[in-house]
Design a protein around this nucleic acid. Structure first.
Lengths: 199, 199
DNA sequence: TTATGTTTTGACCATCCGGTCAAAGCTACG
DNA sequence: CGTAGCTTTGACCGGATGGTCAAAACATAA
């Protein structure tokens, strides 16, 4: 019994979510205001609340749709491919996410910084996937196909480095004094990972 | 003509700064409230404002004292020491900061995520130090004493990885399902850096 | 055109927020 | 002890904030 969305609904809901992403990713949940989001979406505040019942609902929806995007690169890591190329491919896909979806990256960072209070439900799923892939990587290490390393800290390394280019964007650009650090970042990451992983 | 601080002043100012660090590092500047800070410090809100003229002032003072602590490990990197050991030493000191001052790390992360609006004045100093050390590292690379790598991205790598263990603490602990990831993190980082830097 | 459902808005509300102030309480020292 | 200066607080203020509501404006299709 779901009613189909009208064109106007589709457009406005999308505008609100995009505006919410802008504001939440910069100021966090508590620091963001509905007026800010409404203005960024080009709507009045009551109109915004006609499409979403509450501030929390907007945030929740953003977080939910974020998570599947975010875990996708890890899911795509092929357990039976070449270990080093698979890990490298994963890292590159993750870096591409940072380049193409920096707001989503910052939203995630903000949520974790605040102790992930609105992510509690999804954490088990994340955990399961990570454990599964860590086991695979551990198998590669045990088989001598990559260096003997802790798979969890390897994943942390990739997460940390890729998130950094999105979340600390301001600092990165200030230090480099120029735009688009991503091409070099990819090169650097490949160098680092190949050497770290070599058996 | 500075008046000396009484014991009470010293104690309360410290309590306020510590409470402010707790709250600001979790919720960011806008998300933090004076009532929250006052309660965490065990004071009433007007009493808090007797010691600090405004919310902004507390935040500013925290940021300022953070920055010198934060850059210290990089400053201590010895230009004429053994390249690999110097870089490794720097990374380890930085990781120790994440372990011992996670709230400061998160405060910094929050500030950068929001676009560093209250860090503008200090950015040039940071930049100067980073440029200087990057030149040194670049010299080591050019001389073949370490691998040929981009010094800036090497610094980003160290920052990203060390910050991660403090800022994403919740996620790290959730994934590992246990406390204190730091000993293994140090081991992993050393493995990774030695291989990445080897000429 | 008219009737029906959708979308937008101005006015409003209770609560929270950063901050003020005058008065009360307390401490240290002569 | 007394008192001068330091500390604490309750009451309060103007503005922001999340959210409501009824009515107006608009779109759509018979």
């Amino acid at each position: 019994m779901k009613k189909p969305e009208t064109r106007i609904q589709k457009k406005n809901r999308a505008a609100i979510l995009s505006a919410g992403l802008d504001v939440f990713s910069q100021f966090g949940f508590r620091g963001a205001t509905l007026d800010q989001i409404a203005e960024a979406a080009g709507l009045s505040k009551p109109n915004l609340l006609y499409y979403f019942p509450s501030k929390e609902e907007i945030h929740q929806q953003l977080l939910t749709s974020l998570l599947s995007t975010w875990l996708d690169p890890l899911r795509k890591m092929n357990d039976s491919g070449d270990p080093i190329e698979e890990i490298l491919g994963y890292a590159k896909r993750k870096l591409a996410l940072s380049r193409d979806f920096p707001r989503e990256s910052r939203l995630f960072a903000n949520e974790i910084l605040q102790g992930a209070p609105r992510l509690g439900d999804s954490m088990p799923a994340l955990n399961a996937l990570v454990d599964k892939k860590a086991t695979v990587i551990n198998g590669w290490a045990k088989a001598g196909r990559i260096a003997a390393i802790d798979p969890y800290h390897l994943l942390f390394l990739i997460w940390a480095q890729t998130q950094h280019y999105a979340d600390f964007d301001v600092q990165v650009r200030a230090v480099l004094g120029r735009d688009d650090p991503f091409p070099e970042a990819a090169t650097f990451m490949e160098h680092m990972l190949r050497r770290t992983l070599a058996p």
